[in-house]
Design a protein around this nucleic acid. Structure first.
Length: 416
RNA sequence: GAGGCUAUGGUGUAAGGGUAGCACGAGAGAUUGUGGCUCUCUUAGUACGGGUUCAAAUCCCGUUAGCCUCCCCA
């Protein structure tokens, strides 16, 4: 074959397509219950939007974005995540002026040019939620609870919610110094990766998997004890609210996030069955992002779920059931013509019905009907056409009845 | 982006220098216009490009893709 799909990009069909559909349907239902409205943004934006939002130093921006200059010489990028676009749309459509608070959900493809692996694709899908215009810790708790309720509704077992608080930008900068001062004298004992992380991004050092680094990390200062009063109070309030709502979580004081926009609350949902790419969803508060886009200081919190990873966690779903309940089988050219008419009439009446235009023998048509799990077959041959009737076979019972062609819609509706 | 492992009909697999085989699937048929079970027949493959050899699915090199770990993240 001449063409192949691009690396890290998948075709979705069959069981996966059903999974996508189910996951999105339940998301709509649950998110609506929590008051989130759908907001779909374009998959392309000015590149600058993402570098501003995510931070120029992040890997996502530095080496993973699909970017190009379009015909009008604008530097654009395929979105690597959903939040930046939502915040842009929030400001551009004046939600900040017309609504006290705005709660959105979205669903769609994201693009990151990484080396593919199970659970890591170049085009992947996220479903996410953003609450804008709320600084209250209850919004954090609501968001996290919404995520938990969603996973429970899908029937996902064994997921873990990890919670941390990174403080304000200022607190985080101050803590970065504290951390660097702690690790610097121990640099020689660190692994090669961590030596690099020390100057590039100290926070990443905290979740290093090397045993030797872990020993050092375990005794490192924790950010929770370096927070200001406001951040501490916020964190406590989030925890109390979650406890009150019965959401189970774990505090992980060493959890860092890769995107620069997070402030205060951050969280991550992991699942042990996923292997190396074990983050099922992640999110947090980003109180400075709206401001950095030129809006007023605006509290905001949200999360994104990796749809493909979610599907990997779901137990094997039932195989696809009948694509339709009725099948039209014909014999001969005249019947084929008549059959097509009947087919169209039935479909216009809202009945799910299939027909095989190629089949030669009645036998092969019956076989096809059986294979796609049709319960009833409408049989049309010259005999029937002359009498103005059709035969209806019940594939399950094996019984067969004759009815007037004019009553077809009425009869089939009664069976359906 | 780094290291490693892998690649045989549509799918799952066998053959480990000497005839590419099996199962499932798909298609047709088993007394005239009736599915499922059974039987028969048909279908279709060594990822791609080089090299070694009398001979390559098998050995070597490269490419591509997938997977695992790292990195990163959803």
């Amino acid at each position: 074959m001449k063409f192949k799909r691009l690396r890290g990009m998948h075709d979705v069909f069959g069981k996966d397509a059903l999974g996508f559909d189910r996951v999105e349907r339940i998301a709509r239902d649950v998110f609506a219950r929590f008051g989130f409205q759908e907001l779909l943004t374009p998959i392309m934006e000015e590149k600058e939007l993402f570098t501003r939002a995510l931070g120029t130093e992040t890997d996502v921006v530095q080496k993973e974005m699909y970017e190009f200059t379009d015909r009008s010489k604008t530097l654009v990028a395929l979105r690597p995540e959903g939040t930046a676009g939502i915040v842009r749309a929030y400001l551009e459509n004046h939600f900040d002026k017309t609504e006290g608070q705005s709660k959105f959900f979205y669903s769609g493809p994201m693009f990151r040019s990484e080396r593919p692996q199970a659970g890591r694709l170049r085009q992947f899908h996220q479903i996410g939620v953003e609450s804008l215009g709320v600084a209250s810790p209850y919004a954090d708790a609501e968001t996290i609870q919404c995520l938990a309720v969603y996973f429970d509704s899908l029937g996902i077992k064994g997921y873990e919610i990890k919670l941390n608080n990174l403080g304000t930008f200022e607190e985080r900068e101050a803590f970065k110094k504290v951390l660097t001062e702690y690790f610097k004298p121990r640099e020689k004992e660190l692994c090669e990766d961590c030596k690099a992380r020390l100057s590039r991004n100290v926070f990443r050092l905290l979740d290093c998997k090397t045993a030797s680094c872990r020993v050092i990390v375990e005794r490192s200062p924790e950010i929770t004890s370096h927070l200001g009063e406001a951040s501490k109070k916020h964190f406590d309030a989030v925890r109390r609210a979650l406890d009150g709502a019965g959401v189970v979580y774990q505090i992980n004081a060493r959890m860092a996030r890769g995107l620069d926009y997070y402030t205060k609350t951050v969280f991550e949902v992991t699942h042990a069955s996923l292997g190396a790419q074990d983050a099922l969803a992640a999110g947090g508060r980003y109180d400075r992002l709206v401001e950095s886009f030129g809006g007023a200081p605006t509290g905001a919190v949200g999360f994104a779920i990796g749809v493909e990873r979610l599907l990997m966690c779901l137990a094997e779903q039932e195989a696809g059931q009948a694509v339709s309940s009725f099948f039209v089988a014909t014999l001969g050219e005249a019947a084929l013509q008549k059959g097509f008419e009947v087919l169209s009439t039935l479909r216009a009446a809202g009945i799910q019905v299939q027909m095989d235009f190629e089949a030669k023998s009645l036998k092969s048509q019956m076989r096809t009907a059986d294979k796609i799990h049709c319960r009833y077959v409408v049989i049309l041959g010259d005999n029937e056409i002359q009498k103005g009737v059709f035969n209806l076979k019940d594939m399950k019972e094996g019984a067969q009845e004759e009815h007037a062609l004019n009553d077809a819609v009425k009869i089939l509706k009664g069976k359906g």
